[in-house]
Each structure stands twice: as structure tokens, then as C-alpha cells.
């Protein structure tokens, strides 16, 4: 810069030496913008195969069971967990364990598991047709994994696990959505977990002790100790 160059913002042109430096700085910043955005896009963790059929409403008919979380067993034997709107469990089905049910909702799908976000007001009950589901005890186990909320994990949010999603998972579980335990590639329905009292246990790696069970078509892990 020549000794006497002086920048005044409200004059129409900056002095040549100053303008050159500023032009270079702006070009450098634009290059940074491009490289950084591309790098961050590529460096993010891959996203899981999961989906939420948002806006696609289907009809479901089967038998409703409430334990450990509300689910419906369809005529072909498939099991769909149920969720309410937003971060709430499906409260409309309470008190109808073993009843025939018809409802509408949108599917949430991941790795062979299905959940249905029930459309408010669409639930119709029939007769109490069945007894309780068959329970098979598979023995005690101490499993390493992460407690997640079923709705986000199965596809409403992606990612639906880990630190960035932790607070959301805690809120969803406190709202009564089904709890899942993601352990060594398997996903178990978590029973006996008091989410409101133990939000701190959600969304972090931990070891849980409990009993593995099969309740109807659901793989369940029932907590025993702390």
C-alpha cells in the first residue's frame, strides 16, 4: 500500500492497494465457503436406512395389545407398535387390551420393525376377542447398548440416536412413546424403564441388566436391576 492510501467507506471507490487485498480476502472466503460445506457434507456420519411415510395414511385392522407398549397384531401376524402425534404415546388405545381394533395411520419403518403414527380420532374398537399374548422367557442377560425412543429411531428423525438426538429421545420417552434398546445390532423393546425419572439414562452407551422375553411377536428386554 502506498504510504498515503486511506480507506473511507462512504467514498465510491477504495484505493487500489486496499481494493486488491479486500478482493483477495473475499475470494479466499468464497473458496473457504465451498470447501467447508462440501467437506462437512461428506464427513458427516452416514444416515441409516429408515423412513417415515409422512402424509401417507393407511388402514390397519387387527388385535390391540397394551404391553409392554401399545401394539397391534395384524391378521397376517405382523406386529406394529403404535405412536401418538408428536412426542406422545398413543393414549387413545388405553384400556382395550385384547380387543379387535381398526385404525388409520402412517408407517414408520426400519430394519424389519414397523411403527404406526395413529391418526387422532381414527381408532375403532370391536369385541374383546383374545386372551393375553404368549410370553416366552429367554433368560437373564446384561446387555450393552443405548436407550432410544421408538418413533424417532425407526424413522421420524434421522439420525434418531446418539448425543445430538439425546434430548429429543428423553422428551419422547417422557411423553410415553415406546422405548427401544439398541444393542449389538439387535433392537429390543425395553420394558420397565421409568423415562421421566431417569432421563439421564437415555441416549448414552450403558449396560442394562434384565430378562429377555418374547411377548407375542415382540422381542422384549425387561429391566430388573438399576
Amino acid at each position: 500500500m502506498r504510504e498515503d492510501e486511506f480507506y473511507v467507506g462512504y467514498l465510491p471507490h477504495a484505493p487500489a492497494g486496499v481494493a486488491r487485498v479486500v478482493r483477495r480476502a473475499v475470494v479466499a472466503l468464497l473458496v473457504l465457503v465451498v470447501t467447508l460445506s462440501v467437506t462437512l457434507v461428506v464427513a458427516q456420519m452416514p444416515f441409516a436406512e429408515a423412513s417415515f411415510e409422512y402424509g401417507v395414511v393407511r388402514e390397519f385392522a387387527g388385535v390391540l395389545y397394551e404391553h409392554p407398549f401399545p401394539h397391534v397384531v395384524l391378521q397376517d401376524g405382523a406386529v406394529h407398535l403404535l405412536a401418538g402425534a408428536g412426542k406422545r404415546g398413543s393414549s387413545e388405545v388405553a384400556g382395550h387390551d385384547g380387543h379387535d381394533v381398526r385404525l388409520r395411520g402412517s408407517r414408520i419403518l426400519r430394519a424389519g420393525m414397523t411403527m404406526v403414527e395413529v391418526e387422532t380420532g381414527s381408532v375403532r374398537f370391536g369385541a374383546a376377542s383374545r386372551g393375553p399374548e404368549e410370553v416366552v422367557e429367554l433368560g437373564r442377560a446384561a446387555l450393552q447398548g443405548e436407550i432410544v425412543d421408538g418413533k424417532c429411531y425407526l424413522g421420524v428423525m434421522n439420525p434418531g440416536v446418539g448425543q445430538v438426538h439425546r434430548d429429543c429421545a428423553a422428551r419422547c420417552l417422557a411423553g410415553g412413546l415406546p422405548a427401544l434398546f439398541v444393542t449389538e445390532g439387535r433392537v429390543l423393546v425395553l420394558s420397565g424403564f421409568d423415562a421421566k425419572a431417569r432421563m439421564d439414562m437415555v441416549g448414552v452407551p450403558l449396560t442394562l441388566e434384565g430378562v429377555r422375553k418374547k411377548i407375542g411377536g415382540l422381542e422384549v428386554f425387561e429391566l430388573t436391576g438399576r
Binding site: 402425534a85 406422545r88 422428551r171 411423553g175
Partner: peptide
């Protein structure tokens, strides 16, 4: 909105109760 709305408590309350702390 994404992580705290439509739950059982008001979103800002949810934010302050949240366990991860970074938010």
C-alpha cells in the same frame, strides 16, 4: 421445534430439563 416441541411439557421447559447439556 424439532427436538422439544409437541411433547408433554412446554419446549423451553423441555430444553432446560434436557440431559445432554449442550443445547
Amino acid at each position: 421445534v424439532q427436538f422439544h416441541a409437541l411433547g408433554d411439557v412446554f419446549p423451553l421447559v423441555s430444553l432446560f430439563m434436557a440431559p445432554a447439556r449442550f443445547e
